[in-house]
Measured scan of single mutants.
Amino acid sequence: ENVVSAPMPGKVLRVLVRVGDRVRVGQGLLVLEAMKMENEIPSPRDGVVKRILVKEGEIVDTGQPKIELG
């Protein structure tokens, strides 16, 4: 899985990584606000952040790609 998608609709509060960052499985990639709760979205695997496809403040839909890992 190279693309991390939104598990639920919500607002991107914070992006916790930058392009080029090495990430580990379970590491937080971003914080999504859904139903007035903050949810940290974890990396599904070890890898390197290739692209960030969302911006802080953006509203995302379920299944929308957010971060691409290499």
Rank of each mutant, 00 (worst) to 15 (best):
E1W: 11
E1V: 14
E1N: 13
E1F: 12
E1I: 14
N2K: 09
N2Y: 15
N2H: 14
V3P: 06
V4T: 04
V4P: 04
V4N: 03
S5C: 15
S5K: 13
S5P: 07
S5M: 12
S5W: 10
S5D: 06
S5F: 14
S5I: 13
A6T: 06
A6C: 12
P7I: 10
P7D: 11
P7K: 13
P7Q: 12
P7R: 11
M8H: 12
M8Q: 08
M8V: 09
M8L: 09
M8N: 07
M8A: 09
M8C: 12
P9L: 07
P9Q: 09
P9D: 06
P9F: 10
G10M: 04
G10H: 01
G10D: 02
K11S: 03
K11M: 09
K11A: 03
K11E: 04
V12C: 09
V12D: 01
V12K: 01
V12Q: 01
V12I: 13
V12M: 01
V12S: 00
L13P: 00
L13D: 06
L13G: 03
L13N: 06
L13K: 11
L13C: 09
R14M: 06
R14W: 01
R14C: 11
R14T: 06
V15R: 00
V15Y: 02
V15W: 04
V15K: 02
V15M: 06
L16Q: 04
L16A: 03
V17N: 00
V17W: 00
V17E: 03
V17Y: 00
R18T: 11
R18S: 13
R18F: 05
V19Q: 08
V19A: 07
V19G: 01
V19R: 05
G20M: 06
G20N: 07
G20W: 03
G20E: 05
G20D: 05
G20Y: 03
G20H: 06
G20T: 03
G20I: 05
D21K: 01
D21P: 00
D21A: 07
D21G: 03
D21Q: 13
D21T: 06
D21C: 09
R22S: 12
R22N: 11
R22H: 14
V23Y: 00
V23K: 02
V23I: 08
V23M: 01
V23S: 01
V23T: 02
V23G: 01
R24Y: 13
R24C: 13
R24E: 10
R24D: 07
R24V: 14
V25R: 14
V25P: 08
V25C: 12
V25K: 15
G26I: 05
G26S: 06
G26Y: 05
G26C: 09
Q27G: 04
Q27D: 10
Q27R: 03
Q27E: 09
Q27Y: 02
Q27N: 04
Q27L: 06
G28L: 14
G28N: 10
G28Q: 06
G28C: 14
L29W: 00
L29A: 01
L29Q: 01
L29G: 01
L29S: 01
L29P: 00
L30D: 01
L30H: 01
L30F: 11
V31N: 00
V31P: 00
V31M: 05
V31I: 14
V31R: 01
V31G: 00
L32H: 00
L32N: 01
E33M: 10
E33P: 00
E33Y: 14
E33W: 15
E33N: 04
E33C: 15
A34M: 11
A34F: 15
A34H: 14
A34E: 05
A34T: 13
A34D: 07
M35C: 14
M35H: 13
M35N: 15
M35W: 09
M35R: 10
M35D: 14
M35S: 11
M35V: 09
M35A: 11
K36P: 04
K36H: 14
K36E: 14
K36I: 07
K36T: 11
M37W: 07
M37P: 03
M37T: 12
M37I: 13
E38G: 05
E38R: 08
E38K: 08
N39L: 15
N39F: 15
N39T: 14
N39P: 03
N39W: 15
N39R: 14
E40T: 15
E40I: 15
E40G: 03
E40M: 14
E40F: 12
E40H: 10
E40S: 09
I41K: 00
I41L: 08
I41A: 02
I41R: 00
I41N: 01
I41H: 01
I41C: 09
P42W: 08
P42D: 05
P42C: 14
P42R: 14
P42G: 10
P42E: 08
S43L: 03
S43F: 02
S43H: 02
S43E: 03
S43G: 03
S43A: 11
P44C: 06
P44I: 05
P44E: 05
P44Q: 05
P44S: 05
R45I: 15
R45K: 11
R45A: 11
R45S: 11
R45M: 14
R45V: 14
D46N: 12
D46G: 08
D46M: 07
D46S: 10
G47T: 03
G47M: 02
G47Q: 03
G47Y: 00
G47P: 01
V48R: 08
V48G: 03
V48Y: 14
V48S: 06
V48K: 06
V48I: 13
V49M: 00
V49W: 00
V49I: 12
V49T: 02
V49Y: 00
V49N: 00
K50A: 10
K50L: 14
K50G: 05
K50Y: 07
R51A: 12
R51N: 09
R51Q: 09
R51K: 12
I52N: 00
I52P: 01
I52M: 03
L53M: 13
V54Q: 01
V54N: 02
V54K: 01
V54E: 01
V54W: 00
V54L: 03
K55F: 11
K55H: 12
K55D: 08
K55L: 10
K55E: 11
E56C: 07
E56R: 07
E56N: 07
E56G: 05
E56D: 08
G57T: 04
G57E: 05
E58N: 06
E58V: 05
I59P: 06
I59V: 12
I59Q: 11
I59S: 10
V60F: 03
V60D: 02
V60A: 04
V60E: 02
D61V: 15
D61C: 14
D61G: 12
D61S: 14
D61H: 14
T62C: 11
T62W: 10
T62M: 14
T62E: 12
T62D: 07
T62F: 12
T62N: 09
G63L: 08
G63R: 07
G63C: 09
G63P: 03
Q64M: 09
Q64A: 09
Q64N: 06
Q64G: 05
P65F: 06
P65E: 07
P65M: 09
K66E: 15
K66S: 15
K66A: 15
K66M: 15
I67N: 03
I67R: 01
I67A: 02
I67S: 03
I67M: 10
E68Q: 10
E68I: 15
E68V: 15
E68C: 14
E68Y: 11
L69N: 01
L69G: 02
L69H: 00
L69D: 01
G70Y: 15
G70E: 15
G70P: 03
G70F: 14
G70H: 14
G70C: 15
